[in-house]
């Protein structure tokens, strides 16, 4: 069993397709959906974990792409700008999975671990410097 985090981007033609249903039913994948959004321009974004056999994941991805939905690394939905971050640490207690954390207590530098991020947006509201951004924010 493998897990991959995916960011799906739907366009006007694909936004109404029941992609998740098919991933479960046809490819036997376990889905953990973090966040989904459709804008007034009928563009959609969805971030999810898919868990299943390597072959089923590959087939599922091929299916998604065939349906006209583009796939990206999940992390591209959320951006942490190291240049803007001051390592103040104010976000730390608002990140439920410690994706933002301090590795070295001597320097107290804040680092970001993209694989852990679940796009909860907790840090975005709590970064005084605007170092965190997500395509899901309002």
């Amino acid at each position: 069993m493998k897990t991959r985090k995916l960011l799906l981007t739907f366009n006007k033609n694909s936004v109404e397709k029941p992609i998740v249903y098919h991933l479960v039913k046809d490819f036997d994948l376990i889905i953990n959906l973090y966040r989904a959004r459709i804008t007034a321009e009928e563009q959609g974004s969805m971030i999810l974990d898919v868990t299943g056999s390597e072959k089923n994941i590959a087939d599922g991805i091929a299916f998604i792409e065939k349906e006209g939905v583009s796939i990206d690394d999940a992390q591209k939905s959320f951006r942490w700008d190291e240049q803007i971050c001051t390592s103040c640490g104010n976000c730390l207690t608002h990140c439920p999975v410690d994706a933002l954390h301090i590795e070295n207590k001597k320097t107290m530098k804040v680092v970001f671990e993209p694989d852990l991020c679940i796009d909860c947006l907790g840090c975005i509201d709590n970064c005084p410097y605007g170092a965190c951004q997500s395509i899901f924010q309002e």
Binding site: C88, T93, T107, M108, P128
Partner: peptide, 13 residues
């Protein structure tokens, strides 16, 4: 209780 700061020790350093 989980703690965090408003000031930056890293920048101070």
């Amino acid at each position: 209780i989980e703690s965090s700061s408003m000031s930056s020790y890293e920048k101070a350093l």
